[in-house]
Simulated scan of single mutants.
Amino acid sequence: MMLVSYVIGNHYLFEPPAEGSKEPALDLVFIRGQSWEFLPGYYRHLAPGRGNTVIERLRHIGNTSWVSIQEVRDSPTNELMIRGILQRINVSAIRRRPEPLPDWLKERYYYLTSSVSRPPTVQVFDEPTNVKCFRYSVVVAPSETDTNNHTFHASYLWYCMDCATVGARGGAYSVLRGNLAKFDLKMLEVLYQKESLEGDVLDIESWEDQGSPDILRFQVKKGNENITQLTMQFYLPTA
């Protein structure tokens, strides 16, 4: 889904002005956060050879970042299967700091700036006190990095899923126990806080959300630095 969104954004939504223009292109784009909801139709219709329709819409343009929404629908029925909200940031490749979006982009999408409220994006959550955490560690492998030599954004999803899988087998959670594959994923949220690189040792702390046993939260750390926060919610079997 992220790859499809990247292709749509780069080739259709953010194509820079015509060749010869002095207007700058986007320098370096980082994902700040992403949120995905997997509806029941996803599990009913997803199958090899069955067609899907992906729709990407820009919803808000800020000073250094923008927000888009994405929908995945089952082509034969048009039933909504997945919906997501993504926030990306324009970053200076030299300073590694957020950079204002170029004027041509703000002018092209002027109707999505101050006149449109920003959709809700992923926000930082507090780590609870006096809650038992399950801990899992990984070493970032070369195959888990991107072209910028950073840990690939999708790798954090796998790290946390591996953590949850091992934790569920070991009885770390009250309801999500045993084979985690028995539970369908309902919601996924990721907030990227800092970078990590090949060879870094990452410690993942996970815990069950207080009062909501269908929700697991994860804090990925590199030493004392917070690298990524992630939330997973699962569909619980009905009696």
Rank of each mutant, 00 (worst) to 15 (best):
96 R>K: 11
66 W>N: 09
26 L>M: 12
11 H>R: 13
60 H>R: 10
75 S>W: 04
23 E>C: 03
74 D>Q: 10
31 I>S: 15
67 V>F: 06
14 F>P: 02
11 H>M: 05
75 S>R: 15
51 G>F: 09
31 I>H: 07
10 N>P: 00
7 V>Y: 11
83 R>Q: 12
39 L>C: 05
87 Q>C: 05
64 T>N: 14
27 D>E: 11
39 L>N: 02
68 S>R: 10
20 G>F: 08
92 S>I: 00
42 Y>S: 13
75 S>C: 09
33 G>N: 01
80 L>H: 06
47 A>Q: 13
33 G>F: 00
4 V>T: 12
17 P>Y: 09
50 R>V: 09
75 S>T: 15
61 I>C: 02
69 I>E: 15
7 V>D: 10
80 L>D: 04
23 E>T: 03
79 E>G: 05
92 S>H: 00
56 E>R: 05
59 R>K: 14
52 N>V: 13
71 E>L: 05
93 A>F: 00
41 G>T: 04
12 Y>T: 12
83 R>N: 11
61 I>F: 03
57 R>H: 05
47 A>E: 12
69 I>T: 15
8 I>L: 07
4 V>M: 05
52 N>C: 09
84 G>E: 07
80 L>P: 02
38 F>I: 05
17 P>R: 11
59 R>N: 14
92 S>W: 00
51 G>W: 05
96 R>N: 14
18 A>R: 15
65 S>K: 04
73 R>Y: 02
30 F>I: 01
42 Y>P: 03
27 D>P: 04
49 G>T: 08
86 L>A: 14
56 E>W: 00
55 I>P: 00
50 R>F: 07
54 V>H: 14
92 S>L: 00
31 I>D: 04
91 V>M: 15
4 V>I: 10
29 V>H: 03
8 I>C: 06
59 R>S: 06
12 Y>M: 09
79 E>Q: 12
92 S>R: 00
91 V>K: 07
14 F>H: 09
33 G>P: 00
8 I>N: 14
21 S>C: 01
57 R>N: 09
12 Y>P: 01
54 V>Q: 10
47 A>R: 15
45 H>E: 12
52 N>I: 12
67 V>L: 06
87 Q>D: 02
76 P>G: 09
61 I>G: 02
14 F>I: 06
13 L>E: 10
11 H>P: 00
11 H>I: 07
9 G>Y: 09
77 T>L: 05
10 N>V: 03
45 H>C: 04
45 H>D: 14
26 L>F: 14
86 L>N: 13
13 L>Q: 15
46 L>A: 11
76 P>R: 11
68 S>C: 13
69 I>Y: 01
68 S>I: 04
48 P>I: 15
41 G>S: 10
23 E>R: 06
21 S>H: 02
34 Q>R: 06
9 G>P: 00
24 P>K: 01
